[in-house]
C-alpha cells in the first residue's frame, strides 16, 4: 500500500513535468496552428541556461530565475527572426524548418558548452528526503517539482480563462483575421504566446536537469511524449494537456513499477523481466491509439471553431 502511494507520487511528478512541456507545445500548436519540433530544443536551452547561471551566480533560485528569463527572451527572438515567416506555410514546411532548428541548437550547444554535458547540482535543502506520511519519505526536490508544476497550471488557467490577454489569445486562435480587423496587434500577441511556450519548455528542462543531466539532445525523446500528450488531451487544450500528462505519467510509472511482477505470475522470470520494460513503454502509445480511434479530437478538445 505504501509502495503504491510512493509510486503514484512518482507518476504524478513525471506527469506534471510532462505537462510543463506539453502546455507550451499545445499553446503554440493549438492557438497559433504552428508545429514546433524545436520545442525540445528550448527545453534543452532552459537546462543549459540554468546550469550556467546557477554556476555563475552561485545561487540556485536566482540562477533559475535568470534562466527562465533567458529562455523567454530566446523564444521571442526565435519567433521574431525565424518562425513568424512560417505561419502562412503548411505544416510540412514548419516541420522541416523547426527540425533544422533542432540541428542548429544541438550544434550551437556543442560549440558553446562542449559535447560533455553539464551538471546542475541541487542546494542542500532540496537533496534531503521528506517524510510525507508514516513509512513514506519522498525526495524534497521531486515534491518541489510537483508544487511548481501545479502552481504553473493554476496560473495558466487564470491567465488564459480569466484575463484580457487570455481572452485575446483565445479569440486569436478561433479567428485570426477578425481579431486583427478589430485593431488588436495579433503579431505581438503570437510573439508573446510563443515566448510563454518557450519559457514553459525552459522551465520543464531546468526542473528536470538536476534529476537527469544537462546534455545535447535531451529534449528529443521527451518531446515525443509531449506530442503524445497533446494528441491524447486534444490539441490546443491546456486542460486536456494537464489531465493527459498526469494520465501518461501515471501509466508509464505504474506500468514500470507493477507490470514486471504481474508478468512474472504468467511468464518465466527471465522472460518477464525482459518483456516488462518493453511492454510498459508501449502502454502510452497503446493509450494514444485507443484515444485516436474512439475520440479522434482528443479527450478534452479545445472549444470548437
Amino acid at each position: 500500500m505504501l509502495v503504491l502511494v510512493e509510486q503514484s507520487l512518482n507518476g504524478l511528478q513525471f506527469g506534471l513535468l510532462l505537462f510543463l512541456l506539453a502546455a507550451g507545445l499545445t499553446l503554440v500548436f493549438g492557438i497559433m496552428d504552428f508545429v514546433n519540433l524545436a520545442h525540445g530544443s528550448l527545453y534543452m536551452m532552459g537546462a543549459y541556461f540554468a546550469a550556467t547561471f546557477v554556476a555563475w551566480t552561485g545561487s540556485f533560485v536566482f540562477g533559475i530565475v535568470l534562466a527562465l528569463g533567458a529562455t523567454l527572451l530566446l523564444g521571442i527572438v526565435l519567433e521574431y527572426v525565424a518562425l513568424r515567416h512560417l505561419y502562412g506555410r503548411d505544416h510540412l514546411d514548419q516541420v522541416l524548418a523547426t527540425f533544422g532548428l533542432i540541428l542548429f541548437f544541438n550544434d550551437a550547444v556543442r560549440l558553446i558548452w562542449g559535447p560533455a554535458g553539464l551538471a546542475l547540482p541541487l542546494p542542500a535543502w532540496l537533496t534531503v528526503p521528506v517524510q510525507i506520511m508514516p513509512g513514506v519519505s519522498y525526495p524534497a526536490y521531486r515534491l518541489s517539482i510537483i508544487a511548481v508544476a501545479l502552481a504553473v497550471a493554476a496560473m495558466l488557467y487564470v491567465v488564459v480563462m480569466r484575463t484580457r490577454i487570455g481572452m485575446l489569445i483565445r479569440a486569436g486562435a478561433s479567428n485570426r483575421e477578425m481579431i486583427g480587423a478589430l485593431g488588436i496587434n495579433i503579431k505581438l500577441l503570437f510573439t508573446l504566446v510563443f515566448g510563454l511556450g518557450a519559457a514553459l519548455a525552459g522551465l520543464a528542462g531546468l526542473m528536470q536537469a538536476p534529476i537527469l543531466t544537462v546534455q545535447i539532445g535531451m529534449g528529443e525523446n521527451i518531446l515525443i511524449l509531449a506530442f503524445v500528450i497533446i494528441v491524447i488531451g486534444g490539441i490546443g487544450s491546456i486542460r486536456g494537456a494537464f489531465l493527459a500528462a498526469i494520465f501518461v505519467g501515471m501509466i508509464d510509472t505504474l506500468g514500470r513499477a507493477f507490470l514486471p511482477d504481474l508478468l512474472r505470475k504468467v511468464l518465466s522470470s527471465a522472460a518477464a523481466s525482459t518483456a516488462a520494460p518493453a511492454l510498459s513503454s508501449m502502454l502510452i502509445y497503446l493509450l494514444m491509439a485507443i484515444v485516436l480511434v474512439v475520440r479522434p479530437e482528443g479527450l478534452f478538445p479545445a472549444a470548437k471553431r
Partner: peptide, 15 residues
C-alpha cells in the same frame, strides 16, 4: 530492467 536508452528517470525502480 529499464528501457534503454530512452528511460532516464529511475524513480519507480528506486522506490
Amino acid at each position: 530492467y529499464t528501457v534503454w536508452p530512452s528511460q532516464l528517470d529511475f524513480s519507480a525502480e528506486l522506490t
